[in-house]
């Protein structure tokens, strides 16, 4: 692959901590190889900032191969940047032109308060899972894995929902800051499997209640979440959640 070096301006959100007010700052980064990943470009910039005695930009990242879900930058108006089905860490500088200005913001949602700079607190997602995003089976109770055949299409659909990496791009993209894509991916993953059946009603009811409590908005089916999801989780899952919820609430005993 041909590579070249480019110069860029970066307009980055800086915020000292969750209590302080933040603002944009502009930095020049020069001689960026188009083979670099977006985060490697940040590494280069941070090294320069440290050398100059300035505070480097804080951001979440870990695996840098698109699976841990830690990275979370809102780049030029799109979560994870311009590429389709992609995470920030897998975005490469080939996506940008020489001389371009790139605006980088943190995920914005009341439920995701900024910790510092581009790093936000996504523990609300963990609490949503705590509300019922599991199958209640203790270790050692399991029967043979093949004792319950599962239709391949169902297993595949369940897997497609379970691919969610919990990055929160769906919330960041949604005009309502709704977590419905995240939530519905988990509900679908478990509802599509026979193992998840006994708890399906309580699961969806409790998880929705927790999502509301965390301060996420309601879903208006705009599809922005699906369009930005790095794992291409379908909004069909949201419709499935709605059905689960409808059945659960109308068939409730009390």
């Amino acid at each position: 692959m041909e590579h070249q070096n480019i110069n860029l301006s970066l307009k980055v959100w800086r915020q000292k901590n969750s209590n302080s007010k933040g603002a944009f700052e502009t930095y020049k980064v020069n001689n960026i190889s188009t083979e670099m990943s977006f985060l490697e470009m940040f590494d280069v910039m941070n090294e320069e900032l440290i050398t100059e005695g300035k505070d480097p930009v804080t951001f979440d990242h870990d695996c840098r191969e698109g699976i841990c879900g830690a990275c979370s930058m809102y780049i030029n108006g799109k979560p994870h940047g311009p590429w389709e089905a992609n995470t920030t860490c897998q975005l490469h500088m080939r996506a940008f032109k020489d001389g371009e200005t790139i605006v980088v913001e943190p995920w914005r949602a009341n439920a995701f308060p900024v910790i510092k700079d581009l790093m936000v607190d996504r523990s609300a997602f963990d609490r949503i899972i705590q509300a019922g995003g599991y199958i209640s089976v203790n270790t050692g109770n399991a029967v043979d894995g093949n004792s319950m055949p599962i239709e391949k299409d169902k297993a595949d659909a369940s897997f497609a929902a379970a691919m969610c990496i919990g990055c929160g791009a769906c919330v960041a993209a949604c005009k309502n800051s709704s977590a419905m894509l995240f939530l519905s991916a988990k509900v679908s993953h478990l509802a599509l499997l026979p193992q998840g059946d006994p708890e399906r009603s309580t699961r969806v009811i409790n998880m929705v209640a927790q999502m509301d409590k965390e301060g996420f908005g309601a879903c208006t089916n705009t599809g922005a979440c699906e369009a930005t999801c790095p794992k291409e989780i379908s909004i069909t899952n949201i419709a499935r959640l709605n059905q689960e919820y409808l059945l659960a609430s109308f068939t409730a005993d009390k």
Binding site: Y134, I135, V137, T139, G140, N141, A142, V143, G145, M148, A155, D156, S158, F159, A162, H189, L190, L193, Q195, G196
Partner: peptide, 8 residues
């Protein structure tokens, strides 16, 4: 165990 937990 993993199948019982719903690992697809």
């Amino acid at each position: 165990q993993c199948v019982a937990q719903g690992v697809p």
